[in-house]
Design a protein around this nucleic acid. Structure first.
Ligand SMILES: NC(=O)c1ccc[n+]([C@@H]2O[C@H](COP(=O)([O-])OP(=O)(O)OC[C@H]3O[C@@H](n4cnc5c(N)ncnc54)[C@H](O)[C@@H]3O)[C@@H](O)[C@H]2O)c1
Ligand SMILES: NC(=O)c1ccc[n+]([C@@H]2O[C@H](COP(=O)([O-])OP(=O)(O)OC[C@H]3O[C@@H](n4cnc5c(N)ncnc54)[C@H](O)[C@@H]3O)[C@@H](O)[C@H]2O)c1
Lengths: 213, 213
DNA sequence: AAATGTTTGTTAATCCATTCACATAGTAGC
DNA sequence: GCTACTATGTGAATGGATTAACAAACATTT
């Protein structure tokens, strides 16, 4: 079972999806068996890191053999709970929000944006890629109790009003593209994706530290 | 000068844009002076980390006083080279690519997407938010020599062809949304933004480790 | 200009993650 | 079954980043 109550490090958690995607691809290619050394070449993560990460979920491999691809797909699938669908709401149907809805994590059938909200009356009542857009003021009325996850794509200035409203209806996981940091409940897990900062720090690295080893 | 050749850590580099944004906002609010303790409350980074980061760019502050906001805006602006515009090309004008072009880092006048490329004939020859969309096969012909930076928003499957083409015309900094890892030249700085992985690892954290301290 | 209070910059301590390296446990071939 | 390989899982070593804590430096007040 995967309940080895060994603590899973934050760095490991960020890599689980990469492992899952890679072993899924291998499985689709009909590969039955994989060594950490070979996997390392595919995903560009050192083999020692892979083995340590894997070992924090139990003894998934066999000495002298490697890992069974099917076992890995199974175990990481369980970790990511891909068997039961995660229903997600999205707030802010601008350029970015609409793109996310259109795509709707198509490659991952367990991730579903099922409804969206905006305050722009031109957007309210429409559908984007089959997903209905509701008035954000009707949030409490429209949301179904199975939704615990939200994606925010509103301007930074609107974020301080949006987050408490989401927490008020029971959302406890938030992915946001608005970089404005916000205080949220201790039970809320929030992650910021700050596109401008990513680009700026990339450029800093490229310009200042072109000492590629 | 800011050429204290003290090594700047990777973690610090990722925070420079956050510092720059925060001190810019303070400046706009007319704030002249800021202490690390106060800045910590604003951007949710411990004050000790802030002071250590700042000190890697020289002695920016004064004991018993704090930091001059104007000085900080100046110094971080120089670090991020905001005085001269960074011209950027974008490949893949799908939902995400179009959203990025429309927005065009509006808040940062030094970051400009100046041209875009696609292989879809329905898009080639059009404009998105004033930015022309060219045929990707005309990349070498269309690109101007001032462009050293690219954003990639093509499907993962197309990425292995796109990156060598970009490197061929002198691009050395790449921000990509296609998670497929690629080998690139040692002189290329590449950063991946993997939206699906971000969401999946967020959900893992929310579901498995709701031991919010 | 002396006394008091404040906040930096940095040294030392700690924490977290990566990497090395190998004993152990298994595979594969005969 | 025995021998020769092979690759895992993990202690131990290293490296990187954060945090604590405080002497030194400056501001401010009187
Ligand atoms: N698109 C980019 O390239 C880019 C780059 C960097 C950062 N971002 C950030 O991503 C976020 C979204 O970007 P975008 O380009 O889609 O912006 P956008 O302006 O196109 O869309 C924002 C949408 O949010 C809606 N909105 C505003 N206030 C709202 C509220 N209180 N409740 C519900 N909806 C509300 C607006 O009506 C609009 O439809 C912003 O925070 C932006 O700073 C985007
Ligand atoms: N939008 C999302 O929510 C989302 C989520 C997760 C990951 N992603 C990733 O972001 C990337 C872009 O996503 P999207 O939703 O905009 O995809 P999209 O399919 O809407 O757009 C892709 C665009 O790239 C163009 N293209 C394809 N091959 C090309 C080539 N060789 N050269 C130039 N252009 C080419 C296509 O014509 C299309 O316009 C993809 O890699 C996707 O996996 C997006």
């Amino acid at each position: 079972m995967l309940n080895t109550r060994a603590r899973v490090s934050k760095a490991t958690v960020r890599r689980i999806p990469l492992y899952y995607r890679a072993v899924q691809q291998l499985q689709q290619q009909g590969v039955k068996r994989i060594r950490s050394e070979r996997l390392s070449e595919i995903i560009h993560i050192p083999s020692a890191t892979i083995r340590r990460d894997f070992s924090s979920f139990g003894e998934l491999g066999k000495s002298g053999y490697g890992y069974s691809v099917d076992t890995l797909v199974d175990e990481f699938g369980k970790l990511l709970e891909v068997q039961d669908a995660e229903n997600i709401l999205l707030v802010g149907c601008g350029g970015l929000g609409a793109a996310l809805i259109e795509n709707n994590f198509r490659r991952n059938p367990d991730l579903n944006i099922t409804m969206a909200f905006d305050i722009d009356s031109a957007k309210i009542g429409t559908e984007i890629g089959g997903v209905p857009v509701y008035d954000f003021r009707e949030l409490a009325m429209r949301v179904t109790p199975d939704i615990k996850t939200a994606i925010i794509a509103v301007p930074s200035s609107a974020q301080p009003q949006v987050i408490p409203a989401l927490e008020g209806i029971g959302i406890d996981a938030i992915l946001t593209f608005a970089p404005q940091p916000v205080v949220c409940l201790p039970t809320t897990t929030i992650r910021y994706i700050d596109l401008t900062s990513e680009l700026q720090s990339l450029l800093f690295t490229a310009h200042h530290q072109q000492l590629a080893e």
